[in-house]
Design a binder for these strands. Structure first.
Lengths: 141, 141
DNA sequence: GTCTCTGCAAACGTTTTGCAAGTAG
DNA sequence: CTACTTGCAAAACGTTTGCAGAGAC
């Protein structure tokens, strides 16, 4: 029934995490919401199928996933943290009008930045990662 | 006594904001804390000289300052928002070990990014600003 | 004198915690 | 069987709000 269920079980197993219905539900929700959900959005969605799931459980689970490299967590201008199912290095486009966020991935850009900082070393600082926050306006396509 | 007091009064006046001891204290605190303080750090510092200042007042004041372009506000991986006294466009270096943050400003970098996105247009998106989060490790100088 | 700002306390939204009961392995 | 996970409720944390009194201009 759920197309991603097997892949999700595999992923949990490969990280040495126990497979529970709650965990599977939470990971499935990323495929439905797609975007970059807040904990609250995940709770709402998961409760449609599993009304008894506790708020604390979702937070603990998301935390476990972040710690085990299943998902990542980031923050925007607004209060609530957001979770990201995509693990490969990427940047974000932020709408200046609302909370909408999209991914942006471009190897040339990353190469350009690498080259730049190779040439312009920052004193007493060793770069581990560079993330761009690209703020602007989405226009209807 | 306070070296920056006059400049601060000028700045408030130029923005059409009333000059109150609380507002002056809060702006002075940026020169003491230097870094990128949280509201909480500002409250602690301001209370050393002005023990009666209310939490709500500090938040409201910081908000007023942001709205009037006196300071800016941004978020990091951690919970609390941070405030920035520097208004010119700049990027941030984030310590991967602790909460330390430093500014990074480089016109060449900004030019490089402008050129890049001029050549690589993002469909249905109009860029307004680009902020780099440069994550890494500060080494003792 | 007017209008804004301040202090206070209550409340809000998000997230964390402690613990007893439940469940995956 | 054991260790980890869940549900629940309380509380912690950062922040916002409403209001009455105080203060800047």
């Amino acid at each position: 029934m759920e197309a991603h269920a097997d892949a999700i079980r595999e992923k949990l197993k490969s990280k040495g995490l126990k497979i529970t219905p709650q965990r599977v539900s939470i990971l499935e929700s990323f495929h439905v919401i797609g975007d970059h959900p807040t904990a609250d959005q995940i709770i709402d969605l998961v409760r449609q199928k599993n009304p008894n799931i506790a708020t604390g459980t979702v937070y603990k689970t998301l935390d476990t996933f972040v710690k085990n490299g299943v998902i990542t967590k980031f923050r925007t201008e607004s209060e609530a943290a957001r979770y990201d199912f995509i693990l490969t290095h990427h940047h974000h486009l932020f709408s200046s009008d609302d909370d909408h966020i999209e991914d942006y991935e471009n190897k040339d850009l990353d190469q350009l930045l690498d080259d730049f900082f190779m040439r312009h070393n920052i004193p007493n600082f060793k770069i581990k990662a560079i993330k761009l926050q690209i703020i602007g306006r989405f226009s209807p396509s």
